[in-house]
Every structure is written in structure tokens, then in C-alpha cells.
């Protein structure tokens, strides 16, 4: 009898650990495992050398064009996500010796620079870059230009969509803006509230200050976003810029959903029917005397320039 009690006690202890560990695994560990789709995500991070102009192994977008700039080259910089676009412009239009790369970064002599949105805005205001390629500026960036007494010209050159993504196993493929706001505000706690199955909604947010989180905050229009406490047991809804997820969708695992009945396809982004479409711009100082800036931007808006934008994964401004 004593032996039976002892064996039972040992089995109970083993069972307690096994049930606890299994629960942790099923609820958390399994959910957080990087799948093959995350590899695609990593590959989509911008690698300088991957889009290096004039390198035959580069994946930079290529077009044949008669327009060339050989002197008074504008110095280019911009948002990291748009680097493949302006590297493509350089590859098509600039002379090969205009790009000086020391193996880690572009040197000061290089007419192609690569920083990020924050530094690029500062560079164009300070006059160390002639044209930058970025999304709309933040209030701080506009304030900095104003403080320096600099007026900036914004020329829209392409379009990008803000997209919402769900697992490809989620039966919901379309939401209205009101439903999306409802999920993020905590009004809709189950997918069945918006035409899906009976699982909990899990609205996923990004890091505060990131570009996509800023756009999402603006999209919510003052309505605070709430987390669904037990949402991690349900189906998630996330958001991103289309550029970052377009290839991932092709791998499976997630899908972009239609918003207000319009899917985020390139045509719908270019013609403006997709409701969450944002322009990105070529930005320069109004007092910049370099004549090539305007010639260059006119070329960017031509078929050749727009083809580079499209080949780089974005949508044309001139559709």
C-alpha cells in the first residue's frame, strides 16, 4: 500500500510538470516560433549590398533610359525602406564613379547616401543632401525645417499601401475600416462579431514610434487601442506597409485583407481606390539652385522612373 502511494506521488509530480510544460508550449512557445515566413521577412530587410548600383549581382531594379546626369549630381538620401528605389534611380541615371562604398557604408564623396527617414530629413534641411525620398514628414521634422528657415518642396513620386494581415487560416478576408477600428478599440472581442468564427480577436501593435505604429495611431483617429487580454489564444490581426509583407504573403502563412471591399493590389493602390494609400515623395529645398534636381524628378515621374518604382515593389504615382 505504501509502495502504491509512493508511485502515485511520483507519477502525480511528473504529470503536474508535464501538463504545465505542455500548456506553456501550446499557449506561448508554439505561437512564438519563427516559421519559414519570418525568413522572408528577414530577407526583406534592406541590405545595402543587395541593391548596390552598378554591381552585376545586385538585385537593384534596372531600366534602359536615355536620360543621364554627368555633372552637378544631386546627393541622394532617404528612408531605409525606399533605398532600393533611389539606388535604382542612381543605377539608371548616374555615372558609375558617383557611388563610393567602403565595404560598410557610403563615403562622404558618394552621391548616393543611405541613412533613414530621421537623418535624411535633417540632411536635406542642413544641405548635405539635395534630394531625399521619404514618406510625409512628422511634425518634428517640419518644425526643424521651419526653425532653420528652410522651405521644402514635396513632389509625390510613388504610392504605398498600409495593409492589415491575418493568418491564411482565418476565414475572414475582408473588413471595413469601422470593423478594424472596433477590433483595435476592444469593441469586437471575437472574430464572430465581424463575420468570422468564434475565436478571440488579437489586435497586434508595433513598437511606439515606428512608422507603421504612427500610421495606425493616425488611422484610429484618437480612439485608444486596447489589447485583448486573452487574445494570444485567438487569431491575430496585424498591420504593416505592403512593401514588407508582399513577398511573405506569397510564401503562405498570412494574407492581406481587403479594406472596405478593396484589396491592396497595386492597381487599386495606384488609382487610389484602396482606402489606405499613402504617397512618398522626392523632397528638396526650394532654395536649392541645382537645376538637375528638377530634371531628375521629371525623369522619375516619366515611364522609366515609374518603372523603377514598380520593379522595386512599390506602386506608380502616375498610373
Amino acid at each position: 500500500m505504501k509502495l502504491l502511494r509512493q508511485i502515485t506521488a511520483i507519477i502525480l509530480v511528473v504529470l503536474v510538470f508535464a501538463v504545465f510544460d505542455l500548456s506553456v508550449y501550446m499557449l506561448f512557445t508554439r505561437r512564438l516560433k519563427n516559421t519559414n515566413t519570418s525568413e522572408s521577412m528577414k530577407n526583406n530587410s534592406i541590405e545595402l549590398e543587395k541593391y548596390m548600383p552598378f554591381d552585376e549581382n545586385s538585385e537593384v531594379a534596372r531600366v534602359e533610359t536615355d536620360f543621364k546626369i554627368t555633372e552637378n549630381l544631386p546627393v541622394l538620401d532617404g528612408a531605409a525602406a525606399l533605398y532600393p528605389v533611389f539606388a535604382g534611380f542612381v543605377n539608371a541615371v548616374y555615372p558609375e564613379d558617383s557611388v563610393v562604398f567602403d565595404g560598410e557604408k557610403f563615403t562622404e564623396k558618394s552621391y548616393l547616401q543611405y541613412t533613414n527617414t530621421v537623418k535624411a530629413y535633417k540632411a536635406v534641411v542642413d544641405g548635405t543632401a539635395d534630394i531625399i525620398f521619404c514618406a510625409s514628414p512628422s511634425a518634428e521634422q517640419l518644425e526643424y525645417a521651419e526653425k532653420q528657415g528652410v522651405e521644402l518642396e514635396f513632389v509625390p513620386i510613388g504610392k504605398e499601401a498600409f495593409v492589415f494581415i491575418v493568418s491564411d487560416k482565418n476565414p475572414v478576408s475582408e473588413l471595413t475600416t469601422e470593423e478594424i477600428k472596433g477590433i483595435y478599440s476592444g469593441k469586437y472581442k471575437k472574430w464572430s462579431d465581424v463575420g468570422g468564427d468564434n475565436r478571440l480577436t488579437d489586435p497586434v501593435q508595433r513598437i511606439e514610434g515606428s512608422g507603421s505604429q504612427s500610421v495606425m495611431t493616425a488611422f484610429m483617429d484618437g480612439v485608444p487601442m486596447k489589447k485583448n487580454l486573452l487574445g494570444f489564444t485567438g487569431r491575430s490581426l496585424g498591420f504593416s506597409f505592403r512593401y514588407y509583407v508582399a513577398d511573405v504573403v506569397a510564401d503562405g502563412g498570412v494574407k492581406m485583407i481587403a479594406v472596405d471591399g478593396v484589396s491592396p493590389e497595386r492597381k487599386n493602390i495606384s488609382d487610389g481606390t484602396y482606402p489606405l494609400t499613402y504617397n512618398f515623395y522626392a523632397i528638396y529645398r526650394k532654395d536649392n539652385k541645382n537645376e538637375n534636381i528638377k530634371h531628375f524628378i521629371n525623369w522619375i515621374l516619366s515611364d522609366d522612373g515609374q518603372e523603377i518604382i514598380e520593379k522595386s515593389g512599390y506602386s506608380r504615382f502616375n498610373y
Binding site: 516560433k33 497586434v204 490581426l237 511573405v248
Partner: peptide, 10 residues
């Protein structure tokens, strides 16, 4: 990644 998290959630 956020993509994996969403994908794993089904």
C-alpha cells in the same frame, strides 16, 4: 517576427 506570430495563431 510579427508575421510568424500572426501565422502561428491560425
Amino acid at each position: 517576427s510579427i508575421i510568424s506570430y500572426i501565422s502561428n495563431g491560425g
